[in-house]
Simulated assay, not measured.
Amino acid sequence: MNSKTRLRIMTSLLAAALFTGASCAHSQPLTALPTVGSDSGSKPVTGYLIVYTETENPISSGDIVYYPHTPYKIYDSRGVLCRSVRNHLSERDESPARVSLPPGRYTVVGKSETKGDVAVPLVVNASRTTVANL
């Protein structure tokens, strides 16, 4: 429950208590108790990022050839390095990594298939996946 909703509920309860107290001669003061249950608003919500970078030289494993993605770096809105991403789990993995991040503005620096090293500004939203194809 967010703080605006909590404030509305508390205001409604206080108004109801005052209205009830005004009509009863022997009313007792309202005692506010602590919140019961978990506060879902206090849990950090994350977003996700998938970046398709240039692929490395092919790696052959018998009859199968793998093209793993090259690593990249994520910088926050102030230009501070947040994370370096390997961008594949193993040498035989062609899928780019899915990274969880707090919602916000970031810049990804990595290798593009056509433009070499590039910097791409992007936005990560809560509970959403942002996909960047360098």
Score class of each variant (00 low, 15 high):
87 N>E: 06
91 E>T: 06
96 P>T: 12
103 P>W: 01
102 P>T: 12
85 V>T: 05
75 Y>G: 00
90 S>H: 07
74 I>Y: 05
91 E>N: 14
104 G>H: 05
73 K>E: 08
74 I>N: 03
78 R>K: 12
86 R>T: 14
78 R>W: 06
97 A>G: 04
82 C>Q: 08
94 E>C: 14
104 G>T: 06
69 H>S: 13
78 R>I: 06
83 R>G: 01
91 E>C: 05
73 K>R: 12
95 S>D: 10
106 Y>M: 04
98 R>T: 14
75 Y>R: 00
104 G>Q: 04
86 R>C: 08
87 N>C: 10
86 R>W: 09
91 E>W: 06
89 L>K: 14
70 T>I: 04
81 L>F: 07
78 R>A: 13
103 P>A: 00
81 L>W: 10
70 T>Q: 15
100 S>M: 03
87 N>Y: 06
103 P>E: 00
104 G>W: 11
106 Y>A: 01
97 A>S: 15
89 L>P: 00
78 R>C: 04
80 V>T: 13
93 D>K: 08
78 R>Y: 13
101 L>W: 02
75 Y>C: 01
79 G>W: 14
75 Y>Q: 01
92 R>Y: 15
95 S>Y: 12
102 P>K: 15
101 L>V: 09
96 P>W: 10
84 S>K: 09
77 S>C: 02
84 S>E: 15
69 H>T: 03
73 K>Q: 11
89 L>Y: 07
87 N>K: 00
80 V>F: 04
80 V>Q: 14
92 R>T: 14
94 E>F: 08
